[in-house]
Each structure stands twice: as C-alpha cells, then as structure tokens.
Design a binder for these strands. Structure first.
Lengths: 330, 330
DNA sequence: TCACCATTTGTAATCGATTACAAAATCTAT
DNA sequence: ATAGATTTTGTAATCGATTACAAATGGTGA
C-alpha cells in the first residue's frame, strides 16, 4: 500500500503538499492539485487514519455503552447517535456491558488510552466513582440513565412525572387497584417511576399494597411474565398493571393470555418506552413514548461539543402518553 | 498525559524496557519490572493505542455491517461476535448501513484506510463488485447473507431446506392453501426460501397461486401487516401463511387479530428466526430457529483467523423448526 | 526592473509507541 | 578468574501522517 511519500514522489511535490491536498485543498495550487490527484489515482492511495490519528491525538470514535443490545429501547437511540456521528465524521464503537463492571473497565480503558474520544453511556451507575473520575479528564455524556450529582451532563425525560401520568390515566379510567412491575432499583428510572406511581396513588388515597410491587432482576420478557404470574397468584387481583418497560409489559400480557384474562376488561396494562413491538401486541399496548431518536441525536451532539471543549447543559426532553387498546379496549 | 519516555525516565530505564514491560513481560528483569511498575503508577500512565496501532499497522477493530440495528435478528449474532472479539482483544465497530450504498462506502473506506482490520457483513449484496474488490486485499466474512460465487467466506444455514421444512410442516397439518409473505428479492435468503416454499408445494402438487406470494419492500412489522391485509383482501383466503421473518409474521398476526380470525384455526402462521419476541405473541409463533449466537461467534472466529492469514472455509450451520401455538393450537 | 506582498511549496520535527541490532550485564562451568 | 553462553538493556530507526517555519515563487504597481 502506497504511503504519502510515494504519492509525493510520483506527483513530484513534497509530502506537505499532498497532506494539504487532503486537509486544506485551497492552499494548494491548481497545478499541484492535478498532479497529486493523478498520483493518488495511479497509486490507489488511501491516507492512513492510523497515522493521522496519532498525529492529531484523536480517534474520531465515540464509545457507546449500553447494558443490553437486545433491548429494542436502545435501537432508536443508537440510530440518533449514529446519524449525528456520521455527519461529524465520527464513528461509533458500540459496546454491550451487560452491566458487568469488568467489561465496563475494558471500555473505560479504551478512552483512557485514546482509542475513543468520548463516551455516551446508557448504563446504570455500575461504577459511579470510576465514571466520575474518568469524566474529569475525558468527555462523557449520560443518556437516559444518569448518576445524580455526578456533574456529568445528561439527556433524559422526567421519569417520575411520566409514571405519574401513566398511573393517573389508569385511575381516571376507574382503576383503584393497580400493581407495579418494576425493574431493578439500581436503575434511577426505576426508583423515579416507582415514586411517580406512589404519588399517583396517594393523590386519591388509593390502597398501596406491597404485594403489588414486583421488582424484576432482568429486563427480559420472561421477567414480566413471571412478575405477572406472581401478581395473579396473590390473594387479591389488581384491575390494572403498570410495567416500567414495554418488554416487561409484553411478558405480563403473555401471562394474562395464559390465564385467559381479558385485557383491558379484566386487567388493564400500561407499558413504557413505545418500542416498535408495543404496537404489535394483541391488544396494542398503552405506553409512554420517549423521544429516543432525539435523545440519541442530542447526546451525540453534546458529546461532540464537549470534545470540542464547549460547555454543555443537562437536557430533559418531553415524553408522551400513548393511549391504546390495553387500557381503552377496542 | 505521560508517554513512554516519561515513564522510562521516571523508572530510570530505556523506553524499550518499558515497552517490553507491556508486550513481553518475561523479557524484563524483576528489578526493572518493579521500577517500571512504580513509575507507571506514579505517572498514571496508559500506553497510547494510537501509537501502537500505527506502529503495528493494525487497529484491532472489527467492522460489523448490518442493514438495520432495530431488527432483533441481529442482536444475538452481534453478541456472539462481541464475545469472541473481546476474548481476542478486538473491539467491534457496529455500523448500520440501511442498505444504503453511500453509507456502505463510508464503512468500506474505514477498512481501506486501516481504521478497521476486517469486516463481517450481514448486508445483502448491495455492491457486490466493491465487496469483492475489497475482499481481494482485506479480510471479509459474510454472515447469514452472502454473495454467491464471490469467493468470500460465509456462515449461513440452508435457507431453502429450512423453508421447505416449515412449509412441509403446514402441509402435514393438512393445509393445502398456503401463502408466502416474502421480503425483498435482493436478499439471497428471500430467493432461497421462496424456492423451498415452492418445492414443498410441488411435492404434493398443491396449487401455486401468484396472488398468495407477497413481497415486502421493508422488513418492518407494518409490512407484514399490510401483506396480510392484501392476502385477506384477495378472492380466496389461504388456510396458512409462511412469513420469511418473525417480524413480518408478527405484523401478519396483528392483521389477523384485526380481522378477528383465529390463529391457527382460521389461518395457521409460521415465522422465521426465532427472535425473542416470537414466543411472546398470542398465540406463540411457530418459527425456524437459526443458531444466531453461534453464527456470530463463528464469523468472528473466521474473521480473526483470516486476519492472521489463515485459510477459512464456508460453514453451513443447522437450523431447527420450533413448533408452537400458531400452527398447533393450544 | 525592482520592491513588496501574497501565495505556494518544501524541510524537518513531531505524535508515541515497537523492535532490530548491538552492547552490557549476569550466569555457568571450568 | 576467565571464557563462553545467556539474559537483559539501550540506541536509534521506523510506522505515516501533520504542521511550524522558512524559502521560493508569482503578482502588482511604481
């Protein structure tokens, strides 16, 4: 493979001119430009990003940390990140952490040793301390999940208010016995949404029943299914269920089908995230839409700004309650 | 940030010794090892991957090209790739092409100019010529989809036989009027599965009706839904439908619910891929399981072998027909 | 033609590691 | 103690680009 020296020689100019050809075309005379252009074609030359990166001490790679690649909630966010990244000549290094500290370490090292220029993390605060320490010397943005008081900029929605509205929607439909299928409390959104749920109940002095709060270890369908099984196996059956993620809600729905209960007549159901699937279930899920694509775009923009040295502010975006068949019926 | 010179100086040794400390620990005396270790800690030193990459002309990055990040079919494959990559100290650059040639070009360039050491592509043959040309000088593996006669190694399953067995399953259940919801014919699997479908019908001299073959432009739920709408709107209704992907099958299922038809009694349904969601639908989908994780692992192994200069062979893995409620009932 | 300024070009240092080669240090056996 | 083998270390070239600085070239008006 030809290098810049070869091109310079073939074109009869200096390496500086060839370099300028790529980086500041206008600083090269038309005559040289032609010669260089020919030489490049003739030698089939491609500049080595490796060398450029070293010289400029940048990798133009953005590290994106997500807990689970299979969770469709992240797909749209990644799309948003990707679009902004490409437009700014960045690429993304997508890494699944499984919320595993060891893996996270590997990835943190990638930015420490300059293999990546910055991080967008959607991970719950597995290692808040490491993250904060890293953020002191490297650009980091938190997307959706964030460590409070960390001082690291984030993009998110008002999870508590969203949950509040979702549950209020159920209450307004006349439901008085409402269960909560929650995820792990290590997630900030989990704690916030539980608060919203409680606040919504309290407003009408509705019964609050510990038996009706299920916390799942993982965020897979099966966990929602098991949670619902537990709820149905309890002493009294709630008339509505609020699940903190569509994945869990869809699992719950499955179990309701098994139990031959009608949704929403026997049990109404609300999910969260508005993943693509949520509209394909039977009945379609009422859910809270997060502006995922927008969140992705924004976090990428913020990260790139931060890399450039600009100051960036936290952003809280709007959500939207999407009312569909699983609460309203058809 | 400290560099190797600083460490060498602080430790009172040469840069070569520091370098050896990282690359061939045993070639360094215990005494030097201690000194270097201390200097590293004291200076908080991290070797620059950028510099190492340039020197070694490698990036230790694997480019993974997928058409759509939101398609859960790819999640498990990516998991497999990721696991093998990490174990071999590689990272993956996940890129969504949208089957868009321009984007593909951007990514191809990444390997041309050494930003990535090789490619695993799951894209249909958007630009076969470019791909073949690139493969002449760079390691490439095709996963699932592949360009026939390209000479580029691939991992796949026998799509035709899989489709054949899926449709035979329907026939054995007594179905004689079977529709096909296919994807775009640019996909090799689409053409192969259609062949399998036809071969299965022919074996029993079953009617073959062009009206019952729907080809979708995209692989989203909505396309399956529209396809089913078209089928139901036709003159005679089939008693079974084979969809070439779970996503399409789930969309079709949605439409069947709308039409208040019972699955499988009015219309039986078979999907393909065994994505996680296929078990959560009501009724659960009969589908063809591909060994996605295994495919991912294998393609990563093959790619890494290829990067090392080894010869690699094409691999065809086993599939499995998973019979569930959408054909059997409950 | 000459002085002056603007444009274009080239030389050489630099980014931070790896590594071939030679030299120094250490060990082993007599 | 010494020769010879072995281990450890250091020097300096190298990967392939970018860029500060100086030099050359070209253009303009007097």
């Amino acid at each position: 493979m030809a290098n810049i020296q070869d091109v310079a020689q073939a074109a009869g100019v200096s390496v500086a001119t060839v370099s300028r050809f790529f980086n500041d075309r206008s600083a090269v005379s038309l005559k040289s430009r032609k010669k260089v252009d020919e030489a490049i074609k003739q030698l089939n030359y491609e500049p080595s990003v490796l060398a450029r990166n070293l010289r400029k001490t940048e990798s133009r790679l953005l590290l994106v940390l997500i807990p689970k690649i299979s969770n469709p909630f992240y797909s749209e966010i990644i799309n948003g990140i990707q679009d902004v990244a490409i437009n700014n000549r960045y690429n993304i290094l997508l890494c699944e952490t499984d919320s595993n500290p060891e893996r996270e370490d590997i990835y943190f090292n990638l930015v420490r040793n300059k293999m990546a220029d910055g991080i967008i993390t959607m991970d719950p605060a597995v290692q808040v301390d490491s993250l904060i320490e890293l953020a002191a010397s490297h650009p980091i943005i938190q997307c959706s999940e964030y460590a409070v008081e960390s001082g690291i900029p984030y993009v998110t929605i008002d999870h508590e208010e969203a949950a509040y509205q979702a549950v209020r929607h159920l209450i307004q439909l006349g439901h008085k016995e409402i269960a909560l299928i929650n995820s792990h409390e290590k997630f900030l959104y989990s704690r916030k949404r539980e608060n919203g749920y409680k606040r919504a109940l309290e407003k009408d002095n509705l019964p609050f029943n510990e038996e009706w709060i299920i916390r799942c270890e993982e965020l897979e369908f099966i966990n929602g299914q098991l949670a619902m099984r537990k709820i149905l196996g309890g002493n009294n059956r709630p008339t509505a269920v609020f699940a903190v993620s569509d994945l869990l809600a869809i699992g719950a729905l499955k179990e309701l089908h098994h139990a031959e209960l009608n949704v929403p007549n026997d049990v109404a159901l609300v999910g969260f995230d508005k993943i693509a699937f949520s509209n394909m279930t039977y009945p379609a899920l009422t859910t809270v839409a997060q502006p995922m694509y927008e969140m992705g775009k924004l976090s990428a923009k913020m990260l790139i700004d931060k890399i450039k040295g600009k100051e960036v502010e936290n952003v809280t975006l709007d959500f939207e309650l999407v009312i569909r068949e699983s609460t309203l019926g058809r």
